[in-house]
Amino acid sequence: MVVFRDDVEVDRFTADQVERVIFVHRGSGETPGDLSFAVVELPEDTIIFPADTGFAGRVHFERTQFWEEKQCVYWVPESQAPLPGRLRRGLWLLRPGTPAYRRLPRTELASTLERWVVTGPQTWEQRKWLRIERSRPFGSTTQPAALDSTHQRKRA
């Protein structure tokens, strides 16, 4: 994956290096417009991608089979995913701004990310089908076999 700013390459990493992706979303996170930012954990670094970079969009949605096989995509509501103030851009009506693109040593955000209560692993498509299942009459009482009550995939 190559990261550009104004047509200049500023970063590069391979998808195989990705250990975990956390999509932070507003509201229920049901539409791509609800995504606030993505946190990508590599072996040594953590990268923050604002929603407008396309990581949460094109990279995820155009390669769903890759992410489904990798089982590394997690989700957390924005209200439960605070970042240190120095990583957020500006304030808008007293609401913390979204973070800018940034690569940090993994240890720098490790304790912050440990406090987030994430759901997954599940791709956008898996989340969509789980929402559909829950919206059906009596749907909330039947969970797909691969998911437990916290929507965390059971590991064999």
Rank of each mutant, 00 (worst) to 15 (best):
A146S: 13
S36R: 09
E108S: 14
P43A: 03
G29M: 08
T112G: 02
F37I: 03
Q65L: 10
P32M: 11
L104G: 04
S135M: 11
G27C: 08
W129M: 14
L94I: 02
F66T: 05
W129I: 07
S111I: 04
V117P: 00
A145D: 12
H151P: 00
D11C: 07
W67E: 02
G139Q: 09
K70Y: 02
L130N: 10
V117F: 03
V73P: 03
G90E: 08
S111Q: 14
G33R: 12
F66P: 01
F37E: 04
L87A: 01
F55R: 06
S79R: 15
E9K: 15
R153G: 01
T123P: 06
A38Q: 07
M1W: 00
G29Q: 11
T123Q: 05
W67N: 06
R12K: 13
T141I: 06
L109D: 05
K154L: 12
E108A: 15
E108L: 11
L35C: 08
F23D: 03
P77W: 03
P144V: 02
R134L: 09
V39L: 15
P82L: 09
E133K: 13
L113C: 09
E108Y: 07
Q152L: 09
G90I: 01
H60D: 02
E30Q: 15
F61K: 01
F55Y: 14
Q17I: 00
R20E: 14
L147A: 07
Q122S: 12
I132R: 13
P121R: 07
W67T: 06
S28N: 09
P32W: 03
R58V: 05
T64M: 10
T98G: 09
F37C: 13
L83C: 06
T14K: 10
T141R: 13
P32H: 05
